[in-house]
Each structure stands twice: as structure tokens, then as C-alpha cells.
Amino acid sequence: CHSECLGNCSQPDDPTKCVACRNFYLDGRCVETCPPPYYHFQDWRCVNFSFCQDLHHKCKNSRRQGCHQYVIHNNKCIPECPSGYTMNSSNLLCTPCLGPCPKVCHLLEGEKTIDSVTSAQELRGCTVINGSLIINIRGGNNLAAELEANLGLIEEISGYLKIRRSYALVSLSFFRKLRLIRGETLEIGNYSFYALDNQNLRQLWDWSKHNLTITQGKLFFHYNPKLCLSEIHKMEEVSGTKGRQERNDIALKTNGDQASCENELLKFSYIRTSFDKILLRWEPYWPPDFRDLLGFMLFYKEAPYQNVTEFDGQDACGSNSWTVVDIDPPLRSNDPKSQNHPGWLMRGLKPWTQYAIFVKTLVTFSDERRTYGAKSDIIYVQTDATNPSVPLDPISVSNSSSQIILKWKPPSDPNGNITHYLVFWERQAEDSELFELDYCLKGLKLPSRTWSPPFESEDSQKHNQSEYEDSAGECCSCPKTDSQILKELEESSFRKTFEDYLHNVVFVPRKT
């Protein structure tokens, strides 16, 4: 048989008469490798580009789960590009990614509803959504962080984005990388972005840091009482949809009607710091009717980097990364020049730590249904340095008659930039024990000054392991946590139920 035959053949030295091919099969003959313009397919066939392209389009058009959109890589027609490569849609070739590779997620039936953290986790790592997304989240724990972890990498949506009755959302900033909504599939009414009845939605994105392009379709905003109209108009300008909307697409009466839409800028007039305090004062603000001013709200939190936005980490279910302080308005003076500047002394802060701070007014709604208010920009203030805590785990070892090696770990709280350490030492008198000992005694162990690591005695271990207080009263049991108490109650309830079950099964009433 021919060298490319495997198993047997019907005619000697003829690659077209093989029972099976050793390498690849091409047009009725066995070959060692697939010549151009053919590609290896499933490690035994040679196919042309049209064959591989037909497989790709067949799966793409069917949208069946589990099928493969075949691509070409290293002269092979394979189910998908290997790690580190992405497909070129024009020629199906796998090309190296520039940075992290995109991950295209194809949605069944063309859309997916995100109504819980669990459903959001199914899209973790996706960068391109081939379909439409509907966000409908009523509640949950730590929602802002969970949504950002699972949806934060999405850069492109081919269909539309719909935010509907998501009472738990305060902001859409968890879509931190969303840059493009194509609108290839539109919501009824030709809408590519749809926001309806979101009672706590206050911000779409921080438009000073976020760009969003909507290729096709219109915007729809109705019944978002805490979303200011200025935020919607800003989205029109940034996304390129200005002029597409009709009169009733953006409701003037049901958007922002319960919001404090600040239209003035508060400026800080005085800032002073110490290692654990920050004193702030800002310019006074009074609405047209000074009785509408209820006070100020001061927001602050630790910020290692200057990239904080107002609604980071917030949701309507209680999660809030900001510390909020309510401040009463100052006494009002008739003389504008003698107006008191409101302020606040922030206490209990960490030394040498940068804080993000902003302040906003708290006002009631005027009778004319106009909203007044003022808010400052987010500023960054760093507390002063102070003395560091003591170095940890000092170790001293003498390696000769004239040297001592000293080692330690950095302090747990540096409280500033540590530039150097101060080492103090003092000579001590020799131990009298060394002169009084009889060095001729056998088995004498000389006193040693070398360091030995501390260890816990058996008594201390027994005390720590004991669940009861000892007789001397030195140790006591740790208080039980809520989960331990709940577990004990469940076990007790189970024992009672099981005992009742045994009584009912074992003891049967005697027939009379």
C-alpha cells in the first residue's frame, strides 16, 4: 500500500485506493498535508475557505447554543480562536489581540433580562453583547459592586439597553466600559436606550469621564423622579442622539420631579488639616426662599486615587461607600458681607490618608415646582503625618564578641513616609551569675543571650482551647457569634421535631 494509506488498500502504491488515510483526505486521495488554498479540518480532512465560511455563517444565523462559528488559524479551520487571539470578521482569520481579548457573548432569543446578581454573573467577562440587555433589578445585597464585577467589562451592545423598574439602582456607572450601543435591534418605538419607572436612579454616568455613542435609535425617559433633566440632556449631547427624540420621548413632568437638581456650584473657602482632623468651610448658599434650606450634607471617604465619582458603590438597598454628615444651616444675616460661612470639623480620621470630599445642599421643593440647590466639586484632601507606631517583631542576635545583629519589621501604621529608623542602645553591667558559677561542674549549661522565638506554653494553649472559665478566673470563653447562636437554635429545633416524629412513629394507638 501507499505510504499515506492506513489499515489496508485495494490497489498497491495508489493513494486513492486506501481504506483510511494516515494524515489527511483531499478529493478522494490521501495526502501528507493540505496544500494551499485548503485548510486542515478536524485533523483528517482538507477543506477550502468557502466550506469553513459556510459553517461560520450557519452557526451565526441559527443562534443555536453550542454550535461553533468556525475560524481560520495556522492553516486550520477550527471552532474558535485560541487564547490571546480574536477573529477578523472580513476573512475569519485569528489575529493577536492588542491588550485583553474581546469576548463576544451571543444571547438566546436576542435579549437577556438581568433581574438578579445570579443572572448578571452569566455575563461575567463579556466585552461584546450580541443582542439586547434588559435591566430589571428590584433589590439585593452589595448590588453596585456585584454588577460592576460582572457587567463592568461590557464595551458594546449590538441591540438596545433597557432599564425598567430597577428600584435598587442609583447610577449606571457599573457599566464602566460601555462605549457603544449599535441599535441594530430596537425596542418598540425605535428606541435604543429605554429608561422607565426607576424610582431611585439619580445618575446615568459621570459624563466628564465617560463617552457613549448610540449609532441608531432614540432615547426614552419616563417616570424617573430623581433623575434630573440636565442629566438626560447631557446624554443626548454626548451620545449623538440630540435631535432624534420626539416631543413625548422625554417626559418633562415625570423626570426629576422629586430630585434636588443642583444648578449652582458650592466653593470651599477654608481648608485646614491635622493628622486626624480636617476643618472645612464653604461659601454660604440661600435659595430664593431661605426657609427652603434644610441644611447641608457632607460626604467623605478614603480615596487612594483621584478618580472618585459621587455615586460609586451606591445602591438604593443601603450600600453606600460614603460617610454622610448632616449639618444645620448657619444663622442668616441681613448683611451679605457678614454672612457666616458654614463648615464642619471632621474628626477621627487616619493620618497621612487622602480623602475625597464634597458637600451639597438639602432643600425642600418650592411652590413653583422649581428645584434649587448647590453642590461642590469633589475635592481631595490629605491629612498630615504623625509619629508612626512601633516597629514590629524586633530580633537581636550576637554573632561574635563585638557585634549584635538587630532586625525588625516595619510598623503596622507608618502614618507617613518613613525615611529612617533611630536605634538606641545602652551598655549593661555583666551578670554576677557568670562569676559565681563553678565551671568545672559536669552538665553545666552556660547562660545564653542568643534570641529564641517566643512560644506559647501548654497552660496558655489549654486556656485558649477551654470553653469555660478556669477556677483562677484568668480566662473566659469568647462570646458566641450570631451565626453560632442561630445554628444552635436550628439544631435544637431539629432535635425537638425529630423526637416528636419518633414518638408518633414508635407509639401507635392500640386498636379498641
Rank of each mutant, 00 (worst) to 15 (best):
Arg247Cys: 07
Glu283Gly: 15
Gly295Thr: 04
Gln339Glu: 03
Ala316Pro: 14
Ser119Val: 08
Lys234Trp: 07
Gly373Trp: 07
Gly343Met: 13
Val128Leu: 05
Trp205Cys: 02
Thr118His: 13
Glu246Pro: 13
Arg202Leu: 05
Val381Met: 08
Asp312Gly: 10
Leu147Ile: 05
Ser400Asp: 15
Lys337Thr: 13
Thr323Arg: 04
Leu151Asn: 00
Trp207Asn: 04
Ala385Val: 03
Arg138Thr: 05
Ala168Val: 04
Glu146Trp: 08
Val363Phe: 06
Asn399Lys: 08
Gln354Val: 06
Glu283Phe: 07
Lys177Met: 04
Gln258Ala: 10
Arg291Glu: 03
Lys177Asp: 15
Gln258Cys: 04
Glu155Arg: 15
Trp344Val: 05
Trp352Glu: 10
Trp322Cys: 01
Thr383Ser: 03
Lys177Gly: 06
Asp197Asn: 15
Val170Thr: 10
Arg165Met: 08
Lys253Arg: 07
Asn190Ala: 14
Cys317Arg: 00
Val381Cys: 02
Leu279His: 15
Pro342Cys: 06
Tyr380Gln: 03
Lys409Cys: 14
Gln354Gly: 13
His222Thr: 03
Glu237Ala: 05
Ser158Ala: 13
Trp205Ile: 02
Thr254Phe: 06
Ile379Thr: 15
Cys261Val: 04
Phe193Leu: 11
Ala316Arg: 15
Val128Thr: 12
Leu280Tyr: 00
Gly152Gln: 06
Ala144Cys: 08
Asn136Met: 03
Arg182Gln: 03
Pro304Met: 15
Asp289Gly: 04
Arg281Ala: 07
Asp115Met: 03
Leu265Gly: 06
Thr273Phe: 06
Ile357Arg: 00
Asn399Cys: 08
Glu236Trp: 15
Tyr194Lys: 12
Ile181His: 00
Pro336His: 06
Asn200Val: 08
Asn307Ile: 15
Asn255Ala: 06
Gln121Ile: 15
Ser192Cys: 02
Ala259Cys: 14
Thr353Lys: 10
Ser208Trp: 10
Thr215Ile: 14
Ser400Gln: 02
Ala374Arg: 03
Thr113Pro: 06
Asn211Phe: 04
Glu146Lys: 15
Leu107Pro: 13
Glu231Val: 04
Thr185Asn: 12
Gln339Met: 08
Arg179Met: 12
Glu122Trp: 11
Ile154Asn: 01
Ile188Phe: 10
Ser192Met: 02
Leu123Ala: 04
Glu310Phe: 04
Thr309Pro: 05
Ser171His: 15
Gly140Met: 03
Trp344Phe: 04
Ile378Glu: 01
Arg369Gln: 06
Leu331Ala: 14
Ser401Val: 12
Pro304His: 10
Gln354Arg: 09
Thr213Glu: 14
Trp322Pro: 02
Asn334Tyr: 08
Leu108Trp: 15
Ala149Lys: 14
Lys350Trp: 04
Trp344Ala: 12
Leu219His: 03
Gln403Lys: 14
Leu180Pro: 00
Leu180Cys: 12
Gly131Val: 00
Gly256Trp: 04
Lys350Leu: 11
Val381Leu: 15
Ala316Ile: 01
Asn141Met: 14
Ala374Tyr: 05
Asp257Met: 15
Tyr223Gln: 08
Leu147Glu: 00
Gln339Ile: 12
Asp249Trp: 11
Lys218Pro: 11
Leu107Cys: 14
Gly256Leu: 06
Ala303Thr: 13
Pro336Ser: 07
Ile278Ser: 00
Ile395Gly: 10
Cys105Ala: 00
Asn198Arg: 00
Glu184Asp: 15
Ser319Phe: 12
Gly217Arg: 02
Ser321Pro: 03
Tyr285Leu: 14
Leu169Glu: 02
Thr383Glu: 00
His222Gln: 12
Leu266Asp: 00
Val325Arg: 10
Ser166Asp: 03
Thr213Phe: 06
Ala259Arg: 07
Ala374Gln: 03
Gln339Arg: 09
Ala385Thr: 14
Ala120Cys: 12
Asn150Arg: 08
Tyr167Pro: 15
Arg332Ser: 09
Asn307Gln: 01
Thr215Lys: 04
Gly125Trp: 07
Gln354Ser: 04
Asp315Gln: 15
Gly313Gln: 13
Glu146Thr: 04
Leu252Tyr: 05
Leu169Cys: 15
Lys209Arg: 12
Glu109Pro: 13
Glu236Ser: 10
Gly125Thr: 04
Tyr223Pro: 00
Asp312Arg: 13
Ile163Gln: 00
Ile232Pro: 03
Asn136Ala: 05
His341Gln: 13
Gly110Asp: 09
Pro329Gln: 14
Leu406Thr: 13
Pro394Ser: 12
Gly295His: 12
Lys209Phe: 11
Lys253Pro: 11
Ile379Pro: 00
Thr113Gly: 06
Ser260Trp: 03
Ile405Leu: 15
Gly140Gln: 14
